[in-house]
């Protein structure tokens, strides 16, 4: 039982990170029906910005997070403007292929400038403490990750539900044409969505750096795919769905590597994806809509 709870605890912080990434996928999908393949790589860039602001500017973790989020918000908007906007009216296949292109671009430009080698995330930026509570080992890192993720999610909920920009987002995702007729700037709203999603991904990037202790230019791929699975699990396009899906994925993954083989850790994510797609493609919180003829 303790073993089980321990795995839960371990899964929680990983799940929080997945949830943060999944939110970006889900928001972007909700608004332009695009699987933003480059999202995991934006997270990677965020991790690097955080890394350099700690090692080169000597900033603390919070300042590093802030820098990473700002830089990635700008990067997200830029990618949307350059690569996705020209394709807004073309097929979804074309947009998806472009997104794959954007993903490869970020990965290999980073490799080109920063070499493919792994970098050690400075441990002194966040001194580790391990606590033992009721037989469970919990580190301050885990607590920090979960608390920060939850704070960011609450902020996101506030922005989406209570602000004008958030209302515009919801309006555009429901009906772009109608929103436009109501005087909402669709371009600005889409940019805002990318900025928000990318900022959350950047935060996740810094947290992943803390969690695993190392970063590399291809680090975004696998967590990105898993977070995507989390978004689909919760129901793509649905914000609370992404949060729940993220936590579920994190816990499931630690359970599998804890009880089964860690080699199968990555396969499990895809297995889950395929099962959901076959059983309920709209996800846990999704509604069923059949195609109109």
């Amino acid at each position: 039982m303790v073993e089980f709870l321990q795995q839960m605890v371990n899964g929680l912080s990983l799940g929080a990170i997945y949830a943060l990434i999944a939110l970006g996928y889900t928001m972007v999908y909700g608004i332009i029906l695009l699987i933003n393949f480059a999202h995991g790589d934006i997270m990677m860039v965020g991790a690097y910005v955080g890394f350099f602001s700690i090692t080169m500017l000597g900033s603390n973790v919070f300042v590093a997070l802030l820098f990473a989020m700002l830089a990635c918000a700008a990067l997200g908007v830029l990618i949307e403007k350059i690569a996705y906007k020209p394709l807004r009216n073309s097929t979804r296949l074309a947009a998806l292929i472009t997104a794959i292109g954007a993903s490869l671009f970020l990965e290999y430009v980073t490799i080109f400038f920063l070499t493919p080698q792994q970098r050690v995330f400075p441990a002194e930026a966040f001194p580790m403490h391990q606590y033992q509570i009721m037989g469970l080992y919990i580190s301050n890192k885990d607590i920090f990750i979960v608390v920060l993720a939850v704070i960011l999610m609450i902020m996101l909920q506030y922005i989406v539900k209570r602000t004008r920009a958030g209302k515009a987002m919801r309006a555009v995702s429901l009906d772009r044409e109608a929103a436009m007729l109501m005087g909402i700037s669709v371009d600005k709203t889409i940019s805002f969505t990318f900025a928000l999603g990318s900022a959350l991904a950047a935060a996740a990037g810094v947290l992943i750096g803390l969690y695993y202790g190392t970063i590399n230019p291809l680090m975004g791929i696998i967590p990105g795919l898993k977070a995507f699975v989390a978004a689909v699990l919760g129901g793509i396009g649905i914000i609370p769905g992404a949060m729940v899906g993220g936590f579920l994925m994190g816990i499931l993954e630690t359970m599998v590597s804890g009880y089964g083989s860690s080699m199968y850790r990555d396969a499990v994510a895809f297995g889950v994806l395929i099962l959901i797609l076959l059983i309920k493609p709209t996800g846990i919180f999704g509604r069923n809509d059949s195609e109109k003829v």
């Binding site: 690569a83 292929i97 472009t98 794959i100 292109g101 954007a102 993903s103 490869l104 671009f105 990965e107 290999y108 430009v109 490799i111 080109f112």
Partner: peptide
């Protein structure tokens, strides 16, 4: 790979 990416986009 950068060229591949550019080709796709």
């Amino acid at each position: 790979m950068i060229i591949y990416a550019m080709i796709l986009i």
